[in-house]
Computed example of a mutant assay.
Amino acid sequence: MTLIVNQDAFVAAQVVDLIAKERALALSKREWKHRIAGYGYSIRETAEGDIIETLPHHVPVCALPPELAA
C-alpha cells in the first residue's frame, strides 16, 4: 500500500530541496528535524522508508531520498 497519492511533483521537489538545504546547515539529525519543523515539515520513519510529512496534520508529501536519510 502506498501512502502518497496524487501529489504534485513540482511541490515535492521544492520540499525536498528545502529539506536538503536544511540538512546541509544542521550539525546533527536532531537539529535538522527541529529546523524543518519550523517550516512545518517532519520526517516519519516507516517500514517502507522515511516520509516527509506536513505538521500538524501529518499529511505525507513525498518519500525522503535515501542520501538524506543517512
Rank of each mutant, 00 (worst) to 15 (best):
T2K: 13
L3N: 11
L3W: 10
L3A: 12
I4D: 09
I4Y: 13
I4W: 11
V5I: 12
V5T: 08
Q7A: 13
D8C: 15
A9Y: 10
F10E: 14
F10K: 15
V11Q: 15
V11Y: 15
V11N: 14
A12L: 07
A12W: 04
A13V: 06
Q14T: 11
Q14K: 14
V15F: 05
V16M: 01
V16L: 06
V16Y: 03
V16K: 03
D17P: 02
L18Y: 03
L18F: 03
L18G: 03
I19H: 00
I19A: 01
A20M: 08
A20Y: 09
K21Q: 10
K21L: 03
K21N: 10
K21R: 15
E22V: 09
E22K: 13
E22N: 11
R23W: 01
R23A: 01
L25Q: 12
A26N: 05
A26E: 03
A26M: 05
S28W: 01
S28K: 07
K29M: 00
K29Q: 02
K29E: 00
R30I: 04
E31R: 15
E31M: 14
W32N: 06
W32A: 03
W32S: 01
K33F: 09
K33Y: 09
K33H: 10
K33L: 10
R35P: 02
R35Y: 03
R35W: 02
I36F: 02
I36D: 01
A37I: 03
A37F: 01
G38W: 06
G38N: 12
Y39N: 12
Y39H: 14
Y39S: 12
G40M: 08
G40I: 07
I43S: 05
I43F: 07
I43L: 14
R44W: 11
R44F: 09
R44I: 12
R44T: 10
R44E: 11
R44K: 12
R44G: 04
E45F: 11
E45C: 11
T46S: 11
T46Q: 10
A47R: 15
E48I: 14
E48T: 13
E48F: 13
G49F: 00
G49P: 04
D50S: 15
D50V: 08
I51D: 03
I52R: 07
I52T: 05
I52W: 02
E53S: 04
E53F: 03
T54D: 01
T54K: 00
T54I: 02
L55V: 10
L55G: 04
P56W: 05
H57F: 05
H57C: 07
H57L: 11
H57R: 12
H58F: 08
H58T: 05
V59N: 03
V59W: 03
P60A: 00
P60K: 05
V61M: 01
V61D: 00
V61F: 00
V61I: 08
C62P: 03
C62A: 06
C62M: 06
A63F: 01
A63Y: 04
A63M: 07
A63W: 07
L64H: 04
P66C: 00
P66F: 00
P66E: 00
P66R: 02
P66L: 00
E67R: 05
E67D: 02
E67H: 05
E67I: 04
A69Q: 07
A69K: 08
A70F: 00
A70G: 00
A70P: 08
